[in-house]
């Protein structure tokens, strides 16, 4: 499997008042194109931080992050913003839909950063909403949707630009079991059918089962690697 994301000895230290709080203490891992990776670990283990670094909304204190051979850890704020617009789809625990925009407009939002015409945008939004099964809820506002539906709109927003990576931070953390299952099946389908590369932070082992492989973090270190179907995807470097 082609390496899409290469993480080399990444460190992240937060400064809280006068104290340096190390969150990641040298993490190295590769993520292959088409992988579905689950990041697990207790609170404070650094899993969300690692996800944020890969997604380019945070910068490492040390080490390098390369996506498609580009060292995004050296990008400027503005370069990162443009890079995210093209390459990253975000799924959040609390969906983070814009409450004053309807489902269609929420999904259209990332497309406003592209050069697509209004007509092309409409086609893309229709496709994305149909993939998540909400083609009939296009003009509903977030408050008129259930949690599960909201998350599916958010997933549509994450895939509408056909990004290189989809990052999901506890995508089922706020959903009941049935809706969680639905969202996870959807993510799995995106990975299987559309070969989307997905990196998902979760603390729910059941959620992690939908991934091809799982990484465990503890105290800012990779502690073990449990794998499902994706065992062969592990690179020697990641193991080291």
């Amino acid at each position: 499997m082609e390496v899409l994301v290469r993480i080399e000895n990444v460190k992240k230290i937060y400064r809280r008042d006068e104290f340096d709080v190390p969150v990641l203490n040298g993490v190295s891992v590769d993520v292959g194109r088409g992988d579905f990776l689950a990041l697990m670990g207790p609170s404070g283990s650094g899993k969300t931080t690692l996800l944020n670094l890969i997604a380019g909304i945070d910068r490492p204190t040390g080490g390098r992050i390369l996506v498609e051979e580009k060292e995004i850890s050296r990008f400027s704020e503005t370069q990162l913003a443009s890079w995210r617009a093209r390459h990253v789809g975000f799924i959040f625990q609390l969906y983070n839909l814009i409450p004053v925009l309807n489902a269609f407009e929420n999904v259209e939002l990332p497309l406003l950063l592209t050069k697509l015409s209004r007509k092309e945008r409409r086609e893309h939004v229709n496709t994305a909403l149909n993939i998540v099964g909400l083609g009939d809820r296009m003009f509903h506002y977030p408050r008129q949707l259930s949690g599960g539906q909201e998350q599916r709109v958010a997933i549509a927003r994450a895939i509408v630009t056909d990004p290189t990576i989809i990052v999901a931070d506890e995508p089922t953390g706020d959903l009941d079991a049935r809706n969680a299952e639905e969202v996870l099946n959807l993510l799995q389908r995106l990975n299987d059918e559309f070969q989307k590369t997905i990196i998902m932070v979760t603390h729910d082992p059941k959620a992690a089962q939908h991934a091809r492989r799982t990484l465990h973090l503890e105290k800012g270190m990779l502690v073990e690697m449990l794998t499902g179907a994706g065992m062969e995807a592990m690179s020697a470097r990641a193991e080291a």
């Binding site: 997604a55 909304i57 704020e77 503005t78 913003a81 443009s82 995210r84 617009a85 093209r86 990253v88 975000f90 959040f92 609390l94 983070n96 814009i98 409450p99 939002l109 990332p110 950063l113 927003r157």
Partner: peptide
């Protein structure tokens, strides 16, 4: 704050 941060994450510049 959260929705503005979401828009920035999506790629809207400062």
């Amino acid at each position: 704050k959260r929705e503005l941060a979401t828009m920035r994450a999506i790629g809207f510049k400062r």
